[in-house]
Amino acid sequence: MTEPRRPIVEMPLRVRYHECDGQGIVFNAHYMAYVDMCAFEAEKALFGSHAEFLAHGTDVVVAEANLKYRAPARYDEELVVSQHLNHLGTTSMIFDFEIRRAGTLVLAANIRYVFIDPATLRPAAPPDAVRKVYAALLPEG
């Protein structure tokens, strides 16, 4: 039996009033902000800080985002955003994100990040030290 994969991080957050639209639910663009916040928390967990990640001479940019809205979230609800590494390529990686409310899936996202050279902003393979950190997160098998 395969064990469920463990998330890199699980980031709790509470929906703020200004994040809700006229229908009383979280406006769709805010979910991407929640995912982005989680990505920085994962970077901090893996490298210590964003600055320490950048010190390796690499950075990442979002190249593709796919969000699937499953249930609405409303003001003052407590959510948990989790992140898993799905794929590690030569110059890119794909993460799966989930946003849950009390175990109910609110949103599933699949985000492709491209490693770049910070000086040129062009795609570039990450240094071996960075690749090793991410490779250790891939499911075995």
Results as ranks from 00 to 15, higher is better:
111 I>T: 14
48 G>R: 05
117 D>C: 14
24 G>V: 07
139 P>L: 05
12 P>H: 05
6 R>F: 01
60 V>D: 07
31 Y>W: 11
128 D>W: 09
132 K>N: 02
47 F>S: 10
105 L>I: 11
21 D>Q: 04
99 I>P: 01
82 S>R: 09
76 D>C: 10
113 Y>S: 06
70 R>M: 11
33 A>S: 14
131 R>Y: 06
83 Q>R: 09
44 K>F: 09
100 R>D: 06
64 E>D: 15
63 A>I: 05
78 E>P: 14
90 T>P: 00
119 A>Q: 13
110 N>F: 00
59 D>A: 15
18 H>T: 09
78 E>W: 08
98 E>P: 02
87 H>Q: 11
67 L>N: 09
33 A>T: 15
23 Q>G: 12
125 A>R: 08
105 L>V: 13
42 A>G: 08
126 P>K: 00
51 A>D: 15
10 E>F: 02
40 F>Q: 15
86 N>C: 02
100 R>F: 04
124 A>E: 10
26 V>D: 00
2 T>R: 15
32 M>C: 10
106 V>F: 06
17 Y>N: 05
108 A>E: 12
53 F>L: 07
139 P>W: 03
46 L>E: 09
6 R>I: 02
12 P>D: 05
87 H>P: 01
60 V>A: 12
13 L>D: 02
139 P>S: 08
4 P>T: 11
92 S>V: 13
48 G>L: 10
46 L>G: 08
136 A>L: 06
58 T>K: 11
115 F>T: 08
107 L>C: 09
35 V>T: 12
24 G>Y: 10
107 L>T: 07
115 F>P: 02
49 S>Q: 02
45 A>H: 11
62 V>K: 04
34 Y>L: 12
38 C>G: 10
73 A>T: 04
35 V>L: 15
95 F>M: 09
90 T>N: 12
137 L>M: 03
15 V>N: 01
3 E>W: 09
106 V>T: 08
28 N>A: 07
24 G>R: 08
64 E>S: 12
17 Y>K: 03
73 A>D: 08
55 A>C: 11
53 F>I: 11
84 H>S: 00
49 S>C: 06
109 A>F: 02
74 R>Q: 11
78 E>Q: 14
30 H>Y: 13
74 R>K: 12
96 D>K: 01
11 M>F: 05
120 T>R: 12
57 G>L: 10
55 A>E: 15
17 Y>A: 06
140 E>M: 07
133 V>P: 04
133 V>M: 08
35 V>P: 00
29 A>W: 04
124 A>V: 08
13 L>R: 02
73 A>R: 01
68 K>E: 11
51 A>G: 14
138 L>Q: 03
138 L>W: 02
72 P>W: 00
69 Y>G: 02
52 E>D: 14
132 K>C: 01
131 R>G: 01
